[in-house]
Amino acid sequence: MDVGDRRLENSRTPLYGFTGNEVHVVGTIDMPVLFGSPPCKVWKMIKFHVISASSSFNAILGRTTITALRAITSISHLKMKFPTDFGIGKMTGDQAIERQCYLTTLSPRKKADEELEVNQVLDIDTRGLVVPPTSNSCSPIEETE
């Protein structure tokens, strides 16, 4: 993930993984994130906690981000919808890609003692929705789905 000339800020707040184990935070970074596609898009500044871990995902969106977007999520439909100035923005996942990510996560590691690279970026609250979007679209504001 290219962060340009941005620098990680130190963080003393521990994070806890999905299994309850403590996760060391390398640092935090505020980055602008684009949700949706034109014309139904929203830019938000998101604070990410960067950790050293192996993962098939680049980012996990937490409840704080989903709430800031005023988004409605459906995990079973791999979809997230949110209001924009020009209608309802939507992000949709791909079931085949999601399946591959899941299988990659389950596959055994090549070396047990290898050092993990910093490749996972987490939002402040890690109990949220995992959203690796593969397609974006826009629908009229009147949509009631």
Rank of each mutant, 00 (worst) to 15 (best):
residue 47 K to H: 05
residue 99 R to K: 14
residue 46 I to T: 12
residue 76 S to F: 04
residue 2 D to W: 11
residue 139 S to F: 12
residue 120 Q to I: 11
residue 100 Q to Y: 13
residue 86 F to A: 08
residue 47 K to T: 14
residue 108 P to K: 14
residue 120 Q to S: 05
residue 6 R to K: 15
residue 90 K to D: 01
residue 107 S to N: 10
residue 78 L to S: 07
residue 66 I to F: 07
residue 12 R to E: 10
residue 101 C to E: 09
residue 57 F to D: 08
residue 70 R to A: 09
residue 50 V to K: 02
residue 99 R to F: 13
residue 1 M to R: 09
residue 23 V to G: 00
residue 5 D to G: 08
residue 89 G to V: 12
residue 70 R to T: 05
residue 63 R to Y: 02
residue 114 E to F: 08
residue 105 T to Q: 13
residue 143 E to H: 08
residue 1 M to C: 02
residue 19 T to M: 04
residue 3 V to R: 14
residue 7 R to L: 14
residue 20 G to N: 01
residue 131 V to I: 15
residue 36 G to N: 07
residue 45 M to R: 11
residue 19 T to Y: 00
residue 107 S to P: 00
residue 137 S to Y: 14
residue 63 R to N: 04
residue 105 T to M: 13
residue 62 G to W: 06
residue 32 P to I: 15
residue 48 F to M: 06
residue 25 V to L: 05
residue 10 N to E: 12
residue 19 T to I: 01
residue 92 T to Q: 14
residue 33 V to A: 10
residue 74 S to F: 03
residue 27 G to N: 09
residue 139 S to Q: 13
residue 89 G to E: 07
residue 122 L to T: 03
residue 45 M to T: 14
residue 33 V to I: 15
residue 53 A to T: 03
residue 80 M to H: 03
residue 66 I to W: 07
residue 43 W to A: 08
residue 81 K to L: 11
residue 31 M to L: 15
residue 82 F to Q: 05
residue 37 S to A: 15
residue 127 R to K: 05
residue 12 R to A: 04
residue 53 A to Q: 08
residue 24 H to N: 05
residue 87 G to L: 12
residue 18 F to D: 01
residue 7 R to K: 15
residue 140 P to D: 11
residue 104 T to K: 15
residue 115 E to T: 10
residue 141 I to G: 00
residue 83 P to V: 15
residue 86 F to I: 02
residue 17 G to Q: 03
residue 77 H to T: 02
residue 20 G to Q: 04
residue 85 D to K: 12
residue 133 P to H: 12
residue 39 P to Y: 15
residue 141 I to N: 03
residue 114 E to Y: 10
residue 9 E to S: 09
residue 93 G to H: 05
residue 16 Y to V: 06
residue 136 N to T: 14
residue 23 V to D: 00
residue 70 R to G: 07
residue 44 K to H: 09
residue 143 E to A: 11
residue 75 I to F: 07
residue 80 M to Q: 07
residue 53 A to L: 07
residue 102 Y to E: 10
residue 61 L to N: 02
residue 39 P to C: 15
residue 118 V to H: 06
residue 75 I to Y: 07
residue 21 N to Y: 02
residue 135 S to R: 15
residue 14 P to D: 09
residue 129 L to Y: 13
residue 31 M to P: 01
residue 105 T to A: 11
residue 29 I to F: 10
residue 86 F to Q: 11
residue 131 V to T: 06
residue 114 E to A: 15
residue 134 T to K: 09
residue 7 R to A: 13
residue 101 C to P: 00
residue 59 A to Y: 12
residue 49 H to W: 06
residue 126 T to M: 02
residue 8 L to M: 11
residue 123 D to L: 03
residue 96 A to N: 09
residue 45 M to C: 01
residue 2 D to F: 12
residue 16 Y to S: 00
residue 3 V to K: 10
residue 85 D to W: 04
residue 100 Q to A: 13
residue 19 T to P: 00
residue 132 P to R: 13
residue 116 L to T: 04
residue 139 S to P: 00
residue 99 R to S: 10
residue 48 F to Y: 10
residue 69 L to A: 07
residue 71 A to T: 10
residue 57 F to Q: 08
residue 56 S to E: 08
residue 41 K to S: 13
residue 116 L to M: 10
residue 33 V to C: 04
residue 131 V to S: 02
residue 86 F to M: 06
residue 9 E to K: 11
residue 35 F to P: 02
residue 56 S to I: 05
residue 16 Y to T: 04
residue 53 A to V: 03
residue 115 E to Y: 06
residue 124 I to G: 01
residue 47 K to D: 01
residue 34 L to H: 08
residue 71 A to C: 06
residue 12 R to H: 09
residue 105 T to H: 11
residue 25 V to S: 02
residue 53 A to M: 10
residue 84 T to I: 03
